[in-house]
């Protein structure tokens, strides 16, 4: 794959109105000099799921974590991130408000060692929500949205750590949704889960698509093809190809993309 830079590539573009969030020439540097991401410009269409695929170290997670400025503490991020016609990759941007608008779910389920209810209400309370009735309602709604309500409605005050891995991950989604974000970023949300939990999680995501824009990093090609409308392929810190999932999987332009997809399926 030495000549990867010469490969044919296609990057799908959307108009700004179609996009929930988009990046322009996004580059990420670690430790001042080590560049992990090279001028990535991608737009993510509203109310769709976009899968980011690519080998380990291809920069897809780095890219995802830059979108809600989670890399601020460890890396320098150049370029712009457009969100509501505003470049949110500026120091004057209030990252706390930004992260409330762009939720994130991580690779490993990371519920707080608190009760299920508190996991969801903790951030709300920090935002000044005090009305107990309202909070209970949000807990119920977000757990329902995350398809977890039926399983936990009788034990909301038990520790979240007692849930199974799959339930914990859906709780993390519920926790993110409770803040009513516009966008959900998912960093390999199913990689630590068993097949049954994964299926449930995918179901949940498919339903959430109606209202949220989701960007999901995944190693699992089947998963990408099962639930995403669009797919971007990352290679060595570059976004090499971006198109509808159908096109990427059935008719990839570049040789590397094709090899990666076949290798990962085979």
């Amino acid at each position: 794959m030495e000549n990867w830079q010469d490969q044919k590539s296609y990057i799908k573009t959307f108009t700004e109105d179609e996009c929930a969030i988009s990046t322009q020439d996004l580059s990420v540097f670690y430790g001042g000099t080590v560049q992990k991401l090279f001028n990535v410009s991608l737009g993510f269409k509203k109310n769709t799921i976009t899968a980011l695929i690519g080998a380990s170290g291809s920069g897809k997670s780095t890219f995802l974590r830059s979108l809600n400025r989670m890399n601020d503490r460890v890396a320098r991020v150049d370029g712009s991130i457009m969100f509501h016609s505003l470049d949110v990759n500026q120091s004057k941007i209030n990252v706390y408000e930004l992260r409330k608008a762009i939720g994130m779910v991580f690779q490993k389920p990371n519920p707080f060692p608190k009760s299920i209810r508190e996991n969801i209400t903790y951030a709300l309370k920090a935002n000044g929500h005090r009305n107990k009735k309202k909070l209970d309602q949000i807990v119920e709604e977000s757990l329902k949205a995350a398809a977890l309500w039926d399983e936990v409605k009788d034990k909301l005050d038990q520790s979240a750590l007692a849930l199974s891995g799959g339930q914990q991950q859906r709780l993390c989604i519920a926790r993110a949704i409770a803040l009513k974000p516009e966008i959900l970023l998912l960093d390999e949300p199913a990689s630590a889960l068993d097949p049954v939990s994964t299926a449930k999680l995918e179901d949940t995501l498919k339903q959430l698509r109606k209202k949220y824009t989701m960007v999901m990093v995944t190693h699992n090609m089947q998963q990408a093809s099962r639930i995403s409308e669009y797919t971007a392929f990352f290679h060595l810190g570059h976004a090499l190809e971006y198109d509808t999932t159908t096109n990427i999987f059935t008719n990839p332009q570049g040789e590397i993309t094709e090899k990666y997809i076949q290798g990962s399926f085979g």
Binding site: M70, E97, L98, R99, G103, M104, N110, A126, C172, L179
Partner: peptide, 26 residues
């Protein structure tokens, strides 16, 4: 674990609130 801090940050909590409410109890 670092994942606990990230959970707090991703919810738009300030670092200080994350420390006080999540890291210190843990």
């Amino acid at each position: 674990p670092q994942t606990q801090r990230e959970a707090g940050w991703a919810l738009g909590l300030s670092n200080w609130k994350t420390i006080r409410g999540i890291v210190l109890p843990a």
